[in-house]
Design a protein around this nucleic acid. Structure first.
Length: 726
DNA sequence: ATAAAGTGACTTTTT
DNA sequence: GTCACTTTAT
């Protein structure tokens, strides 16, 4: 078996690098996944390292799955025993095994983002803190940041007034999680790091086991992850990390690309390998990417090269507003597909914020075109899906208060607010768990809690407790799907959500989808099911099988590639986002985000901006993204529009304040002569398709797509266009 | 106890 | 222009 087939010299060097620390700095499209998979295969196949002794961590399940299949293909055998997963799922497994050392039980549940906010709210309420002044999301962010830096409540040292309040909330928040036998995402890392820090025998056990530790997307690790890795590699010292500081886009989540620099300091004997040869994009795309990223300060300049040739120029389009942006996207895709220049599945439409997807989706729906949207949140965030999961979580771990109070009266079963509060107070006084109190109540007359409630309340509560008891007993006998169906049946959930309306039908469809997912867990238990769905990322839901365009955020696009990439919303305030204006570090990250988007493109790039944008209900004029000004005109296919063109020429820097520009509006009194979709003949450029037309100062401005030239914007009176009739 | 109607905050990005 | 949370009416 040749483990170096189709690898360039640098890639080969990385694959068979000697043992010890290795840092691979890999530019976009330089084959870093290839290097990682080949190295794992090489270690197992050529070096005889048992798969059991190898640990490889990624950031998404999709990346892990992909690596798994590729390694298996290379080795032509099962890679039994290989530990390959995300940071979070790997930690989750370690915690289940070692929970006896920690204040959690092995059947702990993982609280998602929504649950975490609920717990913060509860903590604020318990401490009588005003949640208007201390917004749950912002308090949670502070707690999360602390956890990412491995700071426990007792070590929280912010002495400002606000800091002291946060410390109190943090302590209560953590108590509440433990009462529920739950952990949040950050806890998975925090508790594992705690375990390895404080129990030498456990650290030894794992550090000895993992002869080789390999890490993907190393620039996105936070401090907790970095410490974790150092512990895990502490015995054999074979740590192989791959990353690119220019693609670090998760600072807000605690990621610190400085970990790459820290790695060089902490492992001075590390081998450093550079992968610069790009196999993905055309040179034009790489040049544009470099023009953008080179403006970031304190970078080691990097030269991206490809052997793919210059390729086509970049198409720039300035739409009237964000709605028309969507129309342009759909028109462009339709037109290129109709001409057999590309397949629908070749396209990806990328945007900065999730909110932007709505108008795009509407444009696709109007045109009756299928698309796929990357975003697990969409599905798992649905009320009906969360309800069912909450039921399952509650059965798996009756201590889970968040899930209990979520479903205690869903569907309505006569347990009102008053009763719920009484139950909470009782639980607090008795230092018992509300879920267990319910189960106790279901014993009927013998229950000591019977008299703590009114007769009516005791009846409804014990009835629910009875259901819970039954399900808990069934949990061991039934499959996940069996249990789920039983719960839906007993709770009357189907009738509750499917009320005969269209929306009701949709809601039930979502439950059906969840049932299909559960069906895949026939031979794995409820534990795997709950863990997997708690740790799915947006990217994980993406499957390449369908030949339709993909809609996704720039963040979700990292690690992916598409022949045709359209980036929309290139206006100041969206990209770069307003929230980054005051913070230079954040602004640099916005630039990296744009860079990541650009470098996803293999063949052609469309950059789309608009003159007006609706935000917060109203439409207002907006400025073109300052990043666009950093791209020299020569890379664009079409003429830049007057507005940006003149600014480029006069050399007004992107940092200068901008004056209000006159915004052109379609004139209602005059009707454009050329309608979108119609075909026209241009004396020089030949045949093209009208994508858009609008009146401006008594002149019709027409955007026409020509097969060979791309998009052109012309004034109808000057261009001598001829309308073609089929 | 529950459904309907009103208020107010909110939009970065996600394991 | 949406969602979640609160108040009010039945």
């Amino acid at each position: 078996m040749d483990y170096f087939q189709n690898l360039n010299p640098q890639q080969q060097q990385a694959v068979m690098a000697t043992f010890g620390p290795v840092l691979v700095l890999a530019g976009p499209g330089s084959g870093k996944t290839r290097v990682l998979t080949h190295r794992i295969a090489y270690l197992i196949g050529a070096m005889g390292v048992p798969a059991y002794h190898i640990l490889a961590v990624t950031f998404t399940n999709k990346a892990a799955r992909e690596m798994g299949t590729r390694v298996t293909n290379l080795l032509d055998e099962q890679t039994q025993g290989l530990t390959l997963g995300t940071f979070h799922s790997t930690c989750a497994r370690i915690l289940r095994r070692e929970s006896d050392k920690l204040p959690i039980d092995s059947n702990y549940v993982i609280f998602d983002a929504d649950d975490q906010i609920r717990v913060v709210k509860q903590a604020l309420q318990d401490l009588n803190i005003d949640d208007k002044q201390y917004r749950p999301v912002s308090v949670h962010a502070a707690i999360s940041n602390a956890k990412n830096e491995l700071i426990f409540p007792d070590d929280y040292k912010d002495q400002s007034y606000r800091g002291k309040v946060v410390a109190k909330v943090y302590r209560r928040y953590q108590e509440l999680l433990l009462i529920s036998n739950g952990v949040d995402f950050d806890d998975l890392l925090l508790w594992t790091a705690f375990l390895l820090d404080n129990f030498p025998e456990i650290r030894q056990k794992y550090a000895r086991r993992f002869e080789h530790v390999l890490v993907d997307e190393f620039q996105d690790t936070n401090q907790a992850q970095y410490v974790l890795l150092k512990h895990l590699a502490s015995f054999h010292n074979n740590i192989f990390v791959v990353g690119d500081v220019d693609q670090s886009i998760y600072r807000w989540r605690g990621a610190d690309y400085r970990n790459v620099l820290r790695f060089e300091e902490d492992f001075p004997d590390a081998q450093i390998i550079l992968l610069e040869q790009n196999y993905r994009s055309t040179q034009t795309i790489l040049d544009v990417a470099m023009a953008v990223i080179d403006r970031n300060p304190h970078r080691k300049p990097k030269k991206l090269k490809t052997s793919r040739g210059q390729g086509k120029k970049v198409v720039f389009y300035e739409a009237y507003d964000d709605r028309q942006e969507g129309q342009y996207v759909v028109d462009t895709i339709t037109s290129l597909v109709a001409r057999h220049i590309a397949n629908p599945g070749d396209f990806a439409v990328m945007y900065r914020t999730n909110a932007q997807s709505r108008l795009l989706e509407e444009a696709f729906l109007r045109a009756n075109l299928p698309y796929k949207l990357v975003g697990a949140q969409r599905f798992y965030g649905r009320k009906e899906v969360k309800d069912i999961i909450a039921y399952l979580r509650l059965v798996y771990n009756p201590g889970d208060e968040v899930s209990l109070f979520r479903v205690i009266n869903i569907p309505p079963r006569g347990i009102g607010n008053k009763t719920v509060i009484d139950l909470q107070i009782l639980a607090q006084n008795e230092k018992d768990n509300p879920g267990k109190i319910l189960i106790n109540l279901s014993k009927g007359i013998e229950s000591e809690y019977r008299h703590s409630f009114t007769k009516r309340a005791a009846t409804v509560l014990s009835k629910f407790g009875e259901l819970l008891t039954n399900w808990t007993e069934l949990a061991n006998q039934l499959s996940v799907l069996g249990l789920m169906d039983r719960i839906i049946e007993d709770a009357g959930y189907h009738e509750y959500i499917d009320d005969g309306t269209d929306e009701g039908h949709d809601r039930w469809e979502n439950v059906e989808e969840l049932r299909r997912l559960a069906a895949e867990y026939q031979d794995r238990g409820i534990e795997s099911f709950l863990e997997d769905i708690a740790l799915v990322s947006d990217q994980d839901t993406l499957n390449e099988t369908t030949n339709v365009p993909t809609l996704l955020t720039l963040h979700a696009a990292k690690g992916l590639e598409f022949p045709m990439v359209l980036i929309v919303g290139l206006t100041d305030g969206i990209l770069p986002h307003v929230r980054s204006f005051e913070d230079p570090e954040a602004m640099q990250e916005e630039r990296r985000l744009f860079y990541v988007g650009i470098t996803r493109a293999k063949d052609q790039l469309y950059l789309i901006s608009s003159l007006n944008r609706s935000s917060f209900g109203f439409t207002e004029p907006v400025e073109e993204s300052r990043f666009l000004l950093d791209i020299p005109d020569g890379f664009f296919f079409n003429e830049r529009t007057t507005r940006s063109h003149s600014r480029w020429k006069t050399g007004i820097s992107s940092t200068e304040p901008r004056w209000g520009t006159s915004v052109s509006k379609p004139d209602g009194d005059q009707t454009p002569q050329y309608s979108p979709g119609s075909r026209v003949e241009h004396p020089v450029w030949g045949e093209g398709m009208v994508l858009n037309s609008r009146m401006q100062d008594d002149e019709e401005i027409v955007d026409i797509f020509f097969e060979d030239l791309g998009l052109k914007r012309v004034a109808a009176s000057l261009a001598k266009l001829e309308i073609k009739h089929d």
